[in-house]
Design a protein around this nucleic acid. Structure first.
Lengths: 337, 337
DNA sequence: CTCTGGCACTCTGTGTTCCCGAGTGCCAAG
DNA sequence: CTTGGCACTCGGGAACACAGAGTGCCAGAG
C-alpha cells in the first residue's frame, strides 16, 4: 500500500515543509532530495499519498502540505528522536544546577525549554500526590493562629494559616507536631488521609478538637487544593512562528490551567514522550498546534509532566530530543536535592 | 495658548480615537460632541493642536490621532479617574477574599486586573525588604541538614535547605530557634543584618559555628536573593488589541523580569498612580504601549507595585480606576491576613 | 508494470490602474 | 473669530491582467 519510496517522499515533504513553511512541489523535492526518480514519478506517489490522507494541497496547483495524519506517520515511523549536542547538554546541566529551590528549578526549566526549542514551554509543578512527606511543621503565629507548613521530598513547601477556636499552649502544639511527624514521615501523600484518620486516638482527649481543625486543613491542602500548578514561558516565540490559526486562542489556552493540564496528558511511562498533533488535541482552540510532552520524576516515580507547544509544522525530532533531555535532567536534579 | 475649546477638542479626539481606533476628522467631532461650533472652526483648532505636537495626522488627508504628548495632557488635565461600579467593587472583594495564601492572592489579583481592564496585568510580589519578620523556623530534615523557613507579615514564605558541617542535636536547634525568634520577631527585614550581627554573642560557644552557617544563609536569602518576583496575566488580551508595533516585542518584555521591574517604576506614594505613555517608556520594544501602575501595601508601607500594560490608545480613566481600586483592595487583604 | 518527458490546464499572488470618498487647508464673507 | 464653500490630496478597495508554479494525464520507453 505504501512502499518505501512513498514513505521517503512523505518524509521529504515533511522535512521540506517544516524548514520552508511553504507547500512543497514535486520538482523541488526531486531537486533537494536525491530520490533517484523524476518529478513525474513523485507526482504519482504524491497522488497516492493524498488519496490516503497523508498530505493535502491547499488549492489546485499548489504544492503539498502534510496533514495531521501525515505528521503522525512521520513521527511514528519515519523519524527518530534527535539527541542534543554535547554543548547543549552541558548548557542544560550548568543552567539547572544553579537553582536553589523548587520554584527556581521549575522557573529555570521552563525558560530553558522555551529557549532550546524556540517554542512555548510548559512545566507542571511536581505533584503533591505522588511525592512523600518529609516534614510537617506547626508554627504559632499569634494567640489563636498557627501556620501549617508541609515539606515534601521534592522540596515543595505548602503553607496555610489556620485560625483556632481556643488558645493553645506551646507544648501542646509541640506534642501535636511530634506525633504528626512520627506518623507521617516518609508517608506517600496519597496515603496521608488514611494515616491521619487514626491519628486522633493517639492524642490526649483535650487536644482532639484542635487536632481535628488542623488535620482537616492538612487534608484540604492535599486533596482539594491538589490543583496542580503550571507555568509556561516563551510566549514570544509564538509571535515569531506566524500561526495559521489565531494566536489569541493559543494564548487563552495557555492561561487556562485546566486546559494545560489536559494537554500535558495522562501519565505515560517515565520520560516517555507523548506527541499530540493538531486535531488529535482535545481542545478546539488548539487545532494547528502540536504538543510534545514527557513525564519527569526522581527515581522511578513520575512526579509531573513538562512539554512544549508549537505549530503542527514543528521540527519533531529536535523538539522531542530537547523535551526528553530536559525531562531527564530535571529528574536528576530533583533526585539529588 | 490653548484655550478651553482647544482642550475640549483634544479631549474629544482622544475619547473618539480610543473608542473607534480610527483617526478622527473634524466633521465626526462636530457631530458626536456638541461643541457648539462648526467643523471649520474645529479644523482651525486642530491645526493649532497639531502645531504644538498634541495630535498628528498619519497622512495628508486622514483624521487626527493623539500623540504621546496629547495623551499626557489628557491624562494630566483633561480627565479624571473613573471609579468602579458597585458591582465591580463587590466582584473584586469576593474574588480576592477567597485566597488562602500569598501565592493565591497574587495569582488572583493579576487575573482579576487583567479581566477588569481587558489588558495585560502585572503584579510584583510583596517585597521582602519592606516587610517584617513574623517567624523563623529551623527544621531538621536529615542528619546534617536543616531547612530554614522565614515567614513575613505579608504571608510570604521563603525556604532554604542548609547543609551543616556537623550533626546537631534537636535541643540545640530548638535553642537557636528560640533565640532567633526573640531577636527577630517583628523586625523589619531591612534591619535584620544588623540585628543578626550581634546575635552569636547570645549563644553558647559550641553553637556558634552552626549558627554562623545558618545566619549566612538567612542573610543571603534576604539580600542576594532579593530579586523581586513578578507575574503577569492576560496576554490573550494583547492579541485582541491589534498592536501597531509588533506584539512580539511586548511578549518578550513581559518575560523579562528586569524590564518589568523598571516598567512598574520607582516607588511613588502609596496607591499613587503612575502613568507612562508610549515613548516616555524606558524600553524601546514598548513604544506604542502605556503602563498604568500603582503601589500597594498594608498600613502605610508600600510593599510592592502592580499595574497594567496596554496600547497607548487605552481608556485611561477606566484603567486608572481599576488599577487604583485593585491596589487598595489587595492592600486591605494583606493587612487583614 | 513502472518510470519518464511532454503538454495543456488551473490556480494564486502580485503589480497596475482607476476611482471614490474622507478629510484637509485656504479664502472670502458674515 | 467663525462659517460655508471649494479645490486638492491621498489612501484603500475593486477590477484586471499576467507570470509562474504546480498539477494531472497521456503516450512511449525500459
Amino acid at each position: 500500500m505504501l512502499d518505501d519510496r512513498k514513505l521517503a517522499v512523505l518524509r521529504a515533504i515533511v522535512e521540506d515543509y517544516v524548514s520552508t513553511n511553504e507547500p512543497v512541489g514535486s520538482k523541488a523535492l526531486a531537486d533537494r532530495h536525491n530520490l533517484g526518480v523524476s518529478p513525474a514519478t513523485i507526482r504519482n506517489d504524491m497522488a497516492a499519498l493524498e488519496e490516503q490522507g497523508y498530505i493535502h494541497q491547499p488549492h489546485t496547483s499548489a504544492g503539498r502540505v502534510p496533514t495531521d495524519k501525515g505528521y503522525r506517520l512521520f513521527v511514528d515511523r519515519l523519524s527518530q528522536v534527535k539527541p542534543l549536542s554535547g554543548a547543549e547538554r552541558r548548557a542544560i546541566e550548568t543552567f539547572l544546577a544553579g537553582a536553589v529551590d523548587l520554584d527556581e528549578i521549575v522557573m529555570r526549566t521552563v525558560r530553558l525549554l522555551a529557549q532550546l526549542t524556540r517554542q512555548v514551554a510548559v512545566v507542571q509543578y511536581p505533584s503533591l500526590t505522588r511525592s512523600t512527606v518529609r516534614h510537617v511543621e506547626i508554627v504559632p503565629v499569634g494567640d489563636r493562629r498557627v501556620m501549617l507548613v508541609l515539606i515534601t521530598n521534592t522540596g515543595r513547601v505548602e503553607q496555610r494559616v489556620i485560625d483556632l477556636v481556643e488558645e493553645v499552649a506551646e507544648d501542646r502544639i509541640a506534642n501535636l507536631r511530634a506525633v504528626l511527624n512520627t506518623c507521617l514521615d516518609g508517608c506517600g501523600l496519597s496515603n496521608v488521609p488514611e494515616t491521619v484518620a487514626e491519628l486522633p486516638e493517639r492524642l490526649p482527649q483535650e487536644d482532639r478538637p484542635v487536632a481535628a481543625t488542623i488535620l482537616s486543613v492538612l487534608l484540604e491542602t492535599l486533596v482539594e487544593r491538589h490543583e496542580e500548578k503550571i507555568v509556561f514561558a516563551g510566549a514570544a516565540n509564538l509571535a515569531a512562528a506566524d500561526f495559521s490559526v489565531g494566536l489569541r486562542d493559543v494564548l487563552e489556552a495557555l492561561e487556562e490551567q485546566v486546559v494545560l493540564m489536559r494537554l500535558l496528558g495522562e501519565t505515560g511511562g517515565l520520560s516517555e514522550l507523548t506527541v499530540r498533533i493538531g486535531s488529535e488535541n482535545p481542545y478546539t482552540g488548539l487545532r494547528g498546534t502540536s504538543i510534545v510532552a514527557a513525564g519527569y520524576g526522581s527515581g522511578d516515580k513520575e512526579l509531573a509532566r513538562l512539554g512544549v507547544l508549537g505549530p503542527t509544522r514543528m521540527d519533531y525530532p529536535v523538539t522531542m530530543g530537547a523535551v526528553r533531555a530536559v525531562a531527564r535532567y530535571v529528574g536528576q536534579i530533583l533526585a539529588g536535592s
